[in-house]
Design a protein around this nucleic acid. Sequence first.
DNA 1: GTCTATACTGAGATAGAC
DNA 2: GTCTATCTCAGTATAGAC
Lengths: 185, 185
Amino acid sequence: MPRSGEDARRRLQQAALELYRERGFDRTTTAEIAARAGVTERTFFRHFPDKREVLFDGESALREVMTEAVAEAPEGLAPLDILRRVFATAGQRIEQNRSFTEPRFEVIAATPALRERDLAKHASLVEAVAQALRQRGVDARSADLATRAGWAVFDRAARDWIDDPGQSMSVHLDRAFEDLRGLIA
Amino acid sequence: MPRSGEDARRRLQQAALELYRERGFDRTTTAEIAARAGVTERTFFRHFPDKREVLFDGESALREVMTEAVAEAPEGLAPLDILRRVFATAGQRIEQNRSFTEPRFEVIAATPALRERDLAKHASLVEAVAQALRQRGVDARSADLATRAGWAVFDRAARDWIDDPGQSMSVHLDRAFEDLRGLIA
DNA sequence: GTCTATACTGAGATAGAC
DNA sequence: GTCTATCTCAGTATAGAC
């Protein structure tokens, strides 16, 4: 059994996702997850602060991708146009990880406790993106409002893509942005 | 000790809010809440499924107010104009309960676990409002997107009102709606 | 790695309202 | 008598302290 911490971490995530799917989040104990990953229960809590967090390890990387995309967007773009680019970048990542994204998505949707954590992570991401906009000089109110409205569009597009993976995320994103425009006009 | 369940329920809510403010959510035990309310710990869990839910008892009433406001809005309004009315109605309720709303708001903002639950309740409200829009014949995608974007506006206005209660919620709402319009144009 | 506090659950008994 | 709120007792699992 490898002693590498990173390896154990990955096995714990894999084991947790499997068990949450097999018997449900509530009926899975941390001891079972640890056993399947070949470590002790204590090790589980060394890697993850709680039973939910094990499914949200990629969030900080996504945050970096998004805040960097904000910083690197060309000068002179309107806030919502910056966000369109940012979400397109994030959408690509999600598209590439589909084999992991999709089962994870299902488990979260089926589990209220995980859904709560998911929403909290989204709120945190939205806040980080809004802050990145502010650092580009966008005023605080506009940054906040644009990012939240933009997230509604992104979320809509992501769910559209789950239902219809034949079209790429960027197509779904464009459509959702157009829909929002139509609703306001 | 009164046998009325409603009375015990109210005492439990009151005791919980007090204790969460006095020593923080994490440092408050359910046994302490029950003791202050004059019931046993087990009774706490008969009224509330968990330690967080005790602060979210008014949500179902707010949901009814909002979905009814959707149903009662005049014919022929665009989705976002319906929502503007709905949120104005909800805003009035929030304004009236200020003495309860504000301490509760503070405790939630200071406690990650409560913030998560708060976000989940918001998501559930958004879904209920979107469904009410669908029942008026608004197509599913528009209902979803409009309600989420509208909620971003509502949330912005609510925080503006906390910072500046001198202006009414409806003023803050109008301003936030105008801001969104400006961002899209 | 060990120990412990506490959130939460289940089943059965009791007490008051009707 | 039924029904419902509460209590008592006995546990399990998570998470944090040591």
